[in-house]
Amino acid sequence: MSTIFGIPPQALFGQLLLGLINGSFYALLSLGLAVIFGMLNVINFAHGALYMLGAFVAWLLLTMAGIGYWWALLLAPLVVGAFGVLLEKTLLSRLYKLDHLYGLLLTFGLALIVEGVFRHFYGVSGQPYPIPDLLRGGQNLGFMFLPNYRGWVVVASLVVCLATWYAIERTKLGAYLRAATENPVLVQAFGINVPLMITATYGFGVALAGLAGVLAAPIYQVSPLMGSNLIIVVFAVVVIGGMGSILGAVLTGYGLGLLEGLTKVFYPEASNIVVFVIMAVVLLIKPAGLFGRER
């Protein structure tokens, strides 16, 4: 059998596909971060905690109220989004005039608090969340066994990423948003409610994190630590893609997922640092990130 760098091609395809699945989560999360940074100039460190919150809301809905996966897919992002709106209205909105650093510290503190509360009540081993019946089982692709649920994650994340990109880059509302980031005073003078738009954007950004949380619930344990395990990588993805660049965040998310997957085959010990090595190299060569523009 022919091999590529000593690995049978079938195995390689399998690993690439897995990389794509993990990339889907990176893309969904970094998309939310990029939207928030692009519009609000806030580095939202609470993103990982809100992703965890999404998964927990789904789990609580199932265990407390018997509400299943599909409703959770809709309800959990709404709950998380509403929580985000509350945060923005009461806390974040006071910091826009100050340096980025303050928003970062506030959201980081919030993340620690939210995580700490859940850890206190639920421990760290996590709670099991079943895969919905419709998506149980899997397909034998010849080169690997693909669980149906993982396939669904890739499709769902692609659709959401594309829709978001389209809404911001190609619709009138998106045009207002982009204009409001460039010059809020002028846009407000045209009679558009800029503060409301900013609140809604933050709510939408964190709702994306909540959605990713629900998607992740059946794959990983629903655990208070799930956010902090992922968030650092996601930040690296956003930095590599270029802060605030939506397309950059999505493409880098998938790309790094693939690259990480390959690392797991060729040099598994390095799989959790490869993203950061790339980040360092990109920052050296292109400080604004691959798709960012210099300001």
Partner: peptide, 17 residues
């Protein structure tokens, strides 16, 4: 696999093959 890995599927597939 590094300590505290979130996704083991890649390693599991290697074990499988």
């Amino acid at each position: 696999a590094p300590l505290n890995t979130a996704d083991f599927s890649s390693f599991l597939l290697q074990a499988q093959s």
